[in-house]
Design a binder for these strands. Sequence first.
DNA 1: ATGAAAGCGCTAACAT
DNA 2: ATGTTAGCGCTTTCAT
Lengths: 347, 347
Amino acid sequence: MAVTIRDIAKRSGVSLATVSRVLNDSGYVKDETRKKVMDAIKELNYTPSAIARSLTKKKTNIIGVLVPDINNPYFGELIKGISNSIDEANFNMILCDTDENMKKEVKALKLLREQRSEGIIITPTSAEDTFNSEYLSVLENLGIPIVLVAGDVKYSSFNGVFVDNIKGAFEATQALIKEGHQKIGIITGRLNSKPAKDRLMGYKKALTINDIPIDEKNIYYGDYRLESGYKCAKQLLKMENRPTAVFTCGYLMTLGTIKAIYEEGMKIPEDISLISFDKVEVLSMLGQNISYVAEDTVEMGKIAVKMLLDNLSSKESEEVKRITLAPKLVLNGSEKYASKNRKINNI
Amino acid sequence: MAVTIRDIAKRSGVSLATVSRVLNDSGYVKDETRKKVMDAIKELNYTPSAIARSLTKKKTNIIGVLVPDINNPYFGELIKGISNSIDEANFNMILCDTDENMKKEVKALKLLREQRSEGIIITPTSAEDTFNSEYLSVLENLGIPIVLVAGDVKYSSFNGVFVDNIKGAFEATQALIKEGHQKIGIITGRLNSKPAKDRLMGYKKALTINDIPIDEKNIYYGDYRLESGYKCAKQLLKMENRPTAVFTCGYLMTLGTIKAIYEEGMKIPEDISLISFDKVEVLSMLGQNISYVAEDTVEMGKIAVKMLLDNLSSKESEEVKRITLAPKLVLNGSEKYASKNRKINNI
DNA sequence: ATGAAAGCGCTAACAT
DNA sequence: ATGTTAGCGCTTTCAT
């Protein structure tokens, strides 16, 4: 990349300023001159340096995006929404996979700061949900506008787009109860995770409202990973007086649960009913329809970017903006209280 | 980000050069001075600007990565391998989703050039496989080292890591034949895609070697997307004298095919046998074991990064390095020629 | 062991 | 309509 604006200037017999003008379409340039410059650019195969430009303009047009795991389809969708919006706004994205790992997240934040990214969109690692003063201090002293997506950071007040987890869990549980289920299991995340806590709360709320006693034995705590869903489900299925339905609180945990159910030779909803928080698209393909609480991840991504851009343009908006989207319950059969299931459980 | 090296210098009562020295651990600095500087950095919450640094050093430590679709688990895995290696080498990654879209790919390349990324790893969009002089010229005039992964670019000779598609397809087909299958369908990609062509070639080779005539009616052309796999499979399943086995040539097309099979109320391998190119992990979870040709994507990613870094350090390596990995056939039952399937087809 | 100054590639006043 | 010049924040000789 040896060729610079200086070479173009020399080649076309004009000054640096003129080249810069045609590059940026700013100021007056005679058509003839413009052509000469353009030709030189073509001939020398020149591309301006974003680095140099950023330095002078004090503007990088870079937005950093942090997610815990690109391979989780949930975040995959989120990223699509975010990256499309960033593209449209003519910004560039630096995407970092924090690997559900706080150290990596902090490292990524440092990187984004060094690169002078103008804003950051974060889905905090769930491990962060517990109070961590060092982490919080990093975040708050970053000096870069932050927008949270889907996950909150305790004791902080960043802008963000969230999902009403309580409502989603409440409606899912409610739907199961309406079907006649009385013993309902839940596989949620660790309690230091806000979404996990909220989902559990929604679940409890539904039970309480319907005068169903809360049985701690029906509550399982995973960590959003597949394996944990599998293990919890295994235990749940082996209970002496096992639930007739289960509410799983995350994409991968749902998958793990289904793995366990299939492994036990059971069917949904014939042997056990299920509702999942998050759509598991691949299942419907395989003829296994699962009812689910739908988050509009693409929409969330869009909103997050919009928030950030608004924030960037109007320097003075000191007010904290937090939007909570209502998830949508989609029922398609897996919540049914099948007669077979009833019979087994009425023995 | 108002605070600069100048502020640190002032605050600690030393010169810019000295601050730079402690920042980079270069040259001699008295311990006492170092401490003063470090303190100032802490106090002012200073982070050096990678932008400015890149400009002076003419080195950005950025590697660009282009994939056609982050949401495709195949690329997801690839990215993990790549990003881990990039991290380890203390480089930074700019990841671009080209959306299976040539325009976007070219745009992304331009971006990476502007950002002065030092090397680029590309999985070319399959649409690119057909000869396209403009695209090729962009690629070749980029002036940035390129390493190809998994997909080749016609009439070019970039370094790259590839998979032996012929071998993989040959072995898969061979396995089906060994099971007794004589009528074997294939769902491959468009023929302007090299992998698709190679996989078809491996398939034909296996048939030929076993004296099985090639029947064009058993060959279906999709486009690697789920929907195309579904449609091809639908047609295939409705054939009058349909194949007893099918070889699907890509992750999403396999999923589409399975969707069609299930929709027709058929089972694998009871009603039809199947081998997939690429592992479809989610299926085994659901109790559906599918035999597959395994590519070691994580390994490919690692190798690609290594190639690129080698290339960057030893300026003079003019020789083209191309590595082709042999895929591994993993059988776990879906290739079986079940008696039910035999009977149906022997009517 | 530390400082002064030039320069990386570009933009944006200010001049002409 | 075009040119000159002073930075942007940093590193790196070259002095001292």
